[in-house]
């Protein structure tokens, strides 16, 4: 597992209003999905990754490793789109005969596969721009501005708060188990994981009880009240983001 969080909290783009970055990432994402021009997609990838590395000062190995995570799905999905099944190998660039059918790549399917891949790459770089410059707490604040139901944002705060505690506990149990041959074969692994999760659930339950008691003692009335810091809009950011998006829209659609 990759701990993205520590880099997010120390990134250099953090000192402005989170709404700016949210809108920039989202608009660029939509442009990248709507456009049919592969060049635009490549430009978006370049802009987002260079912003992350040179402006937000996220170490480049983190960005590269993140970009590699969805490759499994991307490659598998794109290959599936590229392969087509047909009775005749006439218009195929390459093929394998299977029975009376032919499995192969046609010009059209290859085109579709490549444009899908570029579109996915440009969107994923926009998603990373958002995820790597905006901590979850600021994102929840943005969702509050966008009028997300209260219960959803509260649940998000709670889930976020406990994820890291549980992951640490789970990995400690996992290490302890595997050092005692808990994962030596398939049957044993399933059994050990069963113990792990059952224990973790017990702990999770106790945690929620303790949290309830401590909240009650601080005057909890069915609502988690959190003070958000005062974020300030920055002209430089808004102008930069605005110009980039405007240029992209002009290049993509006019």
């Amino acid at each position: 597992m990759l701990y993205v969080d520590e880099f997010v909290y120390t990134n250099k783009l953090r000192n402005s209003h989170p709404l700016e970055r949210f809108i920039f990432a989202f608009v660029t994402l939509i442009i990248g999905i709507l456009t049919n021009n592969p060049l635009i997609n490549l430009i978006i990838v370049t802009i987002m990754l260079s912003f992350l590395i040179y402006w937000a000062k996220i170490p480049s190995f983190v960005v590269v490793r993140l970009m590699l995570i969805p490759m499994g799905f991307l490659v598998l999905g794109v290959v599936t789109i590229a392969i087509s099944i047909s009775f005749s190998p006439n218009d195929m660039l390459a093929y394998i005969p299977v029975g009376t059918y032919y499995l192969g790549i046609t010009f059209k399917s290859l085109n579709l596969a490549i444009s899908t891949m570029l579109r996915a790459l440009s969107s994923i770089s926009c998603l990373y721009f958002l995820a790597l410059t905006t901590p979850m707490i600021e994102l929840i604040y943005v969702l509050e501005i966008l009028k997300m139901p209260n219960i959803v944002t509260e649940l998000m705060i709670l889930v976020y708060r406990f994820i890291f505690i549980f992951i640490e506990t789970a990995f400690n149990i996992y290490t302890a188990q595997s050092s005692r041959w808990g994962y030596c074969n398939f049957k044993r692994s399933i059994y050990s994981l069963g113990i792990l999760f059952a224990n973790l659930w017990g702990k999770a339950f106790l945690k929620s009880k303790a949290l309830f008691i401590s909240l009650l003692s601080r005057g909890y009335e069915n609502k988690l009240q959190v003070l958000n810091p005062k974020y300030r809009f920055s002209k430089v950011y808004i102008i930069t983001f605005g110009i980039i998006d405007l240029l992209l829209i002009i290049m993509a659609f006019i």
Binding site: I151, L155, L158, F162, F166, W201, S208, L211
Partner: peptide, 14 residues
């Protein structure tokens, strides 16, 4: 509510 939040975190870890 707290139980749900904690269970969500549990499911994420799972």
């Amino acid at each position: 509510k707290l139980l749900l939040g904690v269970s969500g975190a549990f499911a994420f870890v799972l």
